[in-house]
Every structure is written in C-alpha cells, then in structure tokens.
Write a protein that binds this DNA or RNA. Sequence first.
DNA 1: GAGATATACGTTATAGTATAACATAGCGCA
DNA 2: TGCGCTATGTTATACTATAACGTATATCTC
Lengths: 131, 131
Amino acid sequence: MGQSADHLTSNQAQVLRHLRAANAPMTAYQLLGRMQNDRGAVAPPTVYRALKGLEEAGLIRRIETLRAWAPVAAIRPGVVVICDDCGTVRGVEAPSLLESLHQRLAAEGFAEARQTIEVHGRCGDCAEDRA
Amino acid sequence: MGQSADHLTSNQAQVLRHLRAANAPMTAYQLLGRMQNDRGAVAPPTVYRALKGLEEAGLIRRIETLRAWAPVAAIRPGVVVICDDCGTVRGVEAPSLLESLHQRLAAEGFAEARQTIEVHGRCGDCAEDRA
DNA sequence: GAGATATACGTTATAGTATAACATAGCGCA
DNA sequence: TGCGCTATGTTATACTATAACGTATATCTC
C-alpha cells in the first residue's frame, strides 16, 4: 500500500541512505551493487520494491530522462532541475507555473492528472567553475 | 549527423509511417515487430538508428514517461500531453510558460539547456465518453 | 578509372532496466 | 492456534538500448 513516510522498512532505509549519500541520481543497478557490497546476495526485486515504496512515500522520484532515482522530495507537482555537469538534482516549486499550465489544458478539456517536468542544463556552481 | 527533414532513408520512412499510422506512441520493439512483418529479418539497431535520425530531424520524440516513441513534431521547447485512456499524444506550445520557467531558473544562476515536460491525464474526448 | 572518404545498413552479441511468479517468514489479532 | 497481512527472498524472464564489427554504395578527387 502507499505507505506514509513515518516508517520505512530496512530495505527502504538502506536504499534511501545510499541515495542521500550520493550527490547525483543512481540507477537501480548501482543501488543493487551497493546493497550487495553491504549484505551479499541481493536481487533486483529487492531494490525495485524499496524504490517503489519510497516513491509512494514521497521521498524519492525516478528521473525519467536519466532512468535513475533521486532523493528529491516529491514536490508533486514540481519541477526537477538537473545539472548535466555535476549531476546534482533538485526539486523546485513552481506553483504559479503549474497552475497556468493546468488552466491552459483545462480550457481544452484535458483533465490533468500528473506532470513530469525535468529541466537539464548547468547549475550556477558549475558555470562559475568554468568562468 | 543531425540530418534535416528533407530526406529520409527508407528505414526512417518506414518507422515514421508506422508511428503515424498508430494512434498512440509505440515502443521500439513494437516497431521492430512491424518491420519484421513487413520485411522479415530486422534487428534492434535498425530500429534505433532510424529513431535517432527521426528524432534529430525533429519529426518524432521519445516519450520518457512511456519509454515509447511518438510522431510529435519537436516543438522544442514544448509540452507533450498524453491521454492515459486512449493513449493519444500531442504537442502543445507554451512559450510564455516556458519563458517564465526559464527566467525563474536563470535568476538562480541555472543555465537551462533543454526541458522535458510531459503531462498525463484524460483528454476531452475520453471524458465525454464516460460522461 | 583507382583510391579515399562518408553514410547507411546488416549482423551478432551484450549491456542495462524492470517485473512476474512463487515461496517463506514474521507479526497482530480474532 | 490459526488467519490474514506485509515484507522479504528467490528464480526466471521480459523489456529497452547500444557496442562493435563488417559490407555496400555513393561521391569526390586526382
């Protein structure tokens, strides 16, 4: 069930810990490798089930454009901003923007259920590094 | 090379024809199946190379949230709107929306390079069908 | 026309991402 | 105690995508 954030299973906690320790999204199989380092035999469903639970709890998101997972609090609706230089990902709230999109689509009769908005580019820190 | 739209190879034309004949995005392996029906032996790289060329020519897009491909003219920047009932996909221009997002991020020092914006929901036609 | 270069294509193999299906263990509680 | 629920383990497989190498063909240049 879509569990709330007040309790994590140990697999979920372990996955979340690895995601938070990384400074960029991790693929499911990268996580699998970490867990195998930690514990020995672990199979893909273990990782995918933990990811599913964490996503439902609003603690992580799949970054569709990277096929990877990040501990971005599910500001949902929200925008994910990804630096292609350093790999960092962060969530950005943009309520007015999303409201205007919503109204735009509603006017055409489209009932919006969810959006995925991912922006790629270069963050301020990386721009400075190359200045 | 990022070829322009003025010439398609025969593989590209064949893939584009199938995508246009469908009323919903198709996965690469669905396309592969169609091409095998048409011609016999075809291997995945044939399909993926055609998809890459068509994408570079701005004739199709990968729908990230569906892991599938659609003949959506690459209004880029633009918004892709997907009906989860009937599967149809269309591109929507939203320049003012994207401009405000751009400025919002620029103000934080983020140099935006490309966005992926996909909205899921139910289109007007499908809403009527259930009315 | 021979050779050089470039593009598309074919072919084989493999990498990478995700889930189905079934079995087991532990917990809360009627 | 026995039932139902959740989490987990385990095996196998499905689905998505690309690497690497060889061949054919067209074009250009000398």
